[in-house]
Design a protein around this nucleic acid. Sequence first.
DNA 1: TCCAGCTTTGGGGTTTACCCCAGCCATTTG
DNA 2: CAAATGGCTGGGGTAAACCCCAAAGCTGGA
Lengths: 241, 241
Amino acid sequence: MSILIVDDEERDRMWLKNLLVQSFPEHGTINEAHDGQQAVDTALKLKPDLVFLDIKMPNLSGIKAAEMILQKLPDTGVIMLSNFSDEVYVRQLWKIVPPNGVFGYVLKNASNEQVVEAAKAVLSGDCWIHPGIARVIQRTQNRATSLTSAEYEALVCIALGMTDHAIAKRLYLTEKAVQSRLKSLYAKLGIPGRGESHETEFNQRCRACYVATRRGLINQSELDDWESKLEEKKTGGPAQV
Amino acid sequence: MSILIVDDEERDRMWLKNLLVQSFPEHGTINEAHDGQQAVDTALKLKPDLVFLDIKMPNLSGIKAAEMILQKLPDTGVIMLSNFSDEVYVRQLWKIVPPNGVFGYVLKNASNEQVVEAAKAVLSGDCWIHPGIARVIQRTQNRATSLTSAEYEALVCIALGMTDHAIAKRLYLTEKAVQSRLKSLYAKLGIPGRGESHETEFNQRCRACYVATRRGLINQSELDDWESKLEEKKTGGPAQV
DNA sequence: TCCAGCTTTGGGGTTTACCCCAGCCATTTG
DNA sequence: CAAATGGCTGGGGTAAACCCCAAAGCTGGA
């Protein structure tokens, strides 16, 4: 049985490796990779039974690496590791996993026992999803609270600080259309408008950013990605912090 | 030589402990604590030479724990461990460390060598500051870019999604005063107004939240603390996500 | 002592964000 | 086929956010 561990941080690789060595006395080779691109290359060469993938990595995200690996080797057991229970990632993951594929999703604050449990489950053909994620998954499938891609686009834009006008220009829409998207976004996030719910006054725009971040719909590193995409489009000059 | 390791995550405690055991053959007892309160209790009892403190912990933050420990035992070598290079924390830390106190600040993505280096430095009476933090520290001491406490208060409020009116009511100010704070906040964050800098249109309020988060002036967990404080003040009922 | 910086307050603007309404067109659903 | 849903468009309105101006109180340092 061969295992591949992919994480850009040495500390986490060591932790996982120690854990696996102790818990799987019959383990075969345990290889490591440091980023997404390396992960794909190594996986295709070694065809491991099990791959642990960190999500946030340089070069190629764990999600995309998983997609590429599963494309060529659909039988590989994939376990995602993440620091966050971010809905963004769960959304993305849901799209790429084959209908009856096998995978695990483990948060990094999981106990050692949970990680071992997840590994065993995936090896024997089951899925294992971290308890903290269950709630998130349910939300992504609830039509009343899950965001459409239009709403999500608008969310990212306001979180970057764009005005209605700027958003309209970038997405090739009318300002009215943007406002329409925002209106339904606010509704789904449960943010009261001006009339309703006295005593709780909110600037919906900022409040939406706060709530969305709290729920893991967006996070800073995703936003930074978007930001740099916008910069490219415009001048070609890099963003300055 | 006795050492105290404080972190709420088992994984990180193990990592650090292994590292110290390997690097300090002459190490004495290595104790552990799981949250801030335990850290203070244990430290006062054992009077360790060196304390590693995670910042983000339940019950009592690492910052506050450090404050209480240094108050009673000013000679203790304190090394803060953090996932982020957040300016919030550096600000807070700066206030509580005695003028010529000894401390270290290490990011969790530090290499093993860096951690050992920091430990040795602090034990021999020097400070050790993670390279990634240097820039942040410089900024906190630059008067043109560092925020005053008034501006910081306003920043937190808009990040929570409050309106000018709501902020004024909560801080016992005029709306004009709030807007005045915000104006200077925007200036310090380098956010262009409507007139200046064509082609870059921003909603300053949201943009400020984005830039501030990017710089580590605020972060989600700090905001959540503030949020729950506001909820207490108001109804006593807990916030619902 | 006076100066410099921070903060508050006020009067007066413009622009933007949000509000309610209604309708049209696409897709999917029973 | 009807019905429902999600998305865009439009008109016309209110209130909030942002703009420039100026002045006064307060702090701490030269």
